Computed example of a mutant assay.
Amino acid sequence: MSAPAFDTIAWFEVAGDDADALQRFYGELFGWRFAVDQEQAADGTDYRIVSYAGDDRPLGGVRGVDDGATGYAVFTVAVRDVEKACATIEDLGGKVEHKVVGSDASPDCAYVRDSAGNLFGIFTPKAK
């Protein structure tokens, strides 16, 4: 299995009470593109399918929740530079919860929160 491409993840779902703000946050941070899931929209669900810049494959989704549900996110993104990504996250209204400088055996990584308060991880893969 090859290493993940930078600024990508395998699959995910992020939910919050302001799907437009989440779309803006992730679109500006990683260059992700969004399309309304027409099937779910027909059922009244605000779900946006995510694809990465230069790739049309659907790889995740953003869900608007307006029923009092708690926002959530569970995923990890490979980035070129954890320190730079942390600075951008804070500039976009997010928060760095815990940052770790890696070693020979482990990568630089951080747990961060997006503009809606959802927790996710970032890391820089070790060079082979």
Rank of each mutant, 00 (worst) to 15 (best):
S2H: 04
S2P: 03
A3W: 04
A3K: 13
A5N: 13
D7W: 02
I9N: 05
F12L: 10
E13G: 07
A15K: 04
A15D: 12
A15T: 12
A15L: 06
G16E: 13
G16T: 06
D18R: 05
D20Y: 00
F25M: 04
F25Q: 06
Y26M: 07
G27V: 05
G27T: 01
E28Y: 00
E28P: 02
F30V: 00
W32N: 00
F34Y: 03
D37G: 04
Q40N: 08
A41H: 02
A42T: 05
A42S: 10
D43W: 07
G44H: 05
T45G: 07
Y47V: 08
Y47R: 04
I49Q: 03
Y52A: 13
Y52S: 06
D55K: 02
D55R: 03
D55H: 01
D56H: 03
R57C: 02
R57N: 01
R57Q: 05
R57V: 01
P58M: 01
P58H: 00
P58F: 00
L59A: 15
V62P: 08
R63Q: 11
D66F: 05
D66M: 08
G68N: 06
Y72C: 09
A73H: 03
A73L: 07
V74W: 09
V74K: 07
V74P: 00
T76G: 15
D81T: 12
K84R: 11
K84H: 12
K84E: 15
K84W: 13
A85H: 06
A87P: 09
T88C: 04
E90A: 10
L92Y: 00
L92M: 03
G93D: 06
K95S: 14
K95W: 11
V96P: 03
V96S: 10
H98G: 04
K99P: 08
V100E: 09
V100L: 14
V101H: 14
G102E: 08
S103H: 10
S106I: 06
P107R: 12
D108E: 08
D108N: 15
C109E: 14
A110R: 12
Y111T: 07
V112A: 05
S115W: 02
S115C: 09
A116V: 02
A116Q: 14
N118C: 08
L119G: 06
L119D: 11
L119H: 13
F120C: 07
F120R: 06
G121E: 09
I122E: 15
I122K: 08
F123N: 09
F123H: 11
P125Q: 12
K126N: 03
A127K: 10
A127L: 13
K128W: 04
